[in-house]
């Protein structure tokens, strides 16, 4: 078989005449993937922390609601959730709100639906990590906090959460990596992130290998950067003289 490798394709202007090169398209997709994943990650951390804490509180109602939240987001495929956010939720909103959403810029619509979807999907996973972090603390820690006169919220704030957060940095690293990978699913509603741009390049150029290899390498790059970043975080929050958590 004869395949003409041509890495120069990235520097060619695109066939649509939008004054960009194919490299420009890739860069746009790369930035979109980063912006989407980071914004969704911040929301996921905040929501996941709250839900995870609620799963461990003595109040049956609160922990029940938190459990239901986690089960719903864990047992429906990400793609289905995304379509629900993008196609269904705007229809179910009160009319004026739904219309307001539909009248915004289509790219913004895609971005918002993707962000909310990824954020809540990931928040359920973060919540599970937070819960298991709190549950893996020695049970005496909670008693020690309470015995000193802390209220239950104070005990969480000053005693349990600071340690739980440190314990869950490694598992959170893998969730953080997952959110970048999962963001590729958003190409299905037309969001032009990295995977979608790779696919476009296959359609527009006759160089499928180059485009897919470039996209794959871009994801590998994100992985490496995130891993080094999180390793730094791990070192930063390390407690002197404290080994393991069990």
């Amino acid at each position: 078989m004869a395949y003409n490798w041509n890495w120069g394709v990235f520097l060619q202007p695109t066939a649509t005449g939008d004054e960009s090169t194919y490299f420009g398209w890739m860069l746009y997709g790369f930035k979109m993937t980063i912006a989407l994943s980071l914004s969704a990650w911040l929301i996921a951390l905040a929501v996941g922390a709250v839900v995870g804490v609620l799963r461990t509180v003595p109040n049956k109602w609160l922990s029940g609601i938190a459990t239901a939240y986690v089960e719903v987001f864990r047992n429906i495929p990400l793609l289905v959730q995304l379509f629900l956010w993008y196609f269904v939720i705007p229809e179910l909103l009160p009319e004026n709100l739904g219309n307001a959403f539909k009248q915004t810029n289509p790219i913004l619509q895609q971005f918002l639906a993707s962000m909310v979807c990824l954020a809540l999907f990931t928040s359920a996973r973060v919540a599970e990590q937070v819960r298991s972090g709190i549950n893996s603390l020695p049970p005496g820690q909670k008693n020690a906090g309470l015995a000193m006169g802390f209220t239950l919220p104070q005990t969480y704030r000053h005693v349990m959460l600071p340690m739980a957060v440190r314990l869950i940095v490694p598992p959170l690293t893998s969730e953080f990596l997952n959110i970048f990978k999962n963001s590729a699913v958003c190409s299905t509603i037309g969001l032009l992130e990295l995977a979608a741009q790779g696919r476009q390049l296959v359609d527009y150029t006759a160089q499928p290998y180059e485009s897919f290899i470039a996209v794959t390498v871009a994801y590998l790059l994100i992985n490496v950067v995130v891993m080094f970043g999180m390793r730094w975080v791990e070192g930063y929050v390390r407690v002197p003289g404290y080994i393991g958590g069990k």
């Binding site: 020695p138 005496g140 820690q141 008693n143 020690a144 906090g145 309470l146 015995a147 000193m148 006169g149 802390f150 209220t151 104070q154 000053h158 005693v159 600071p162 340690m163 440190r166 407690v239 003289g241 404290y242």
Partner: peptide
Amino acid sequence: NLSKLRSTVGMVFQNFELFPH
């Protein structure tokens, strides 16, 4: 108010339970 009561009663535990962080 249990928190208030506990703040006046000192307690020492078998496994120390210092706050490691």
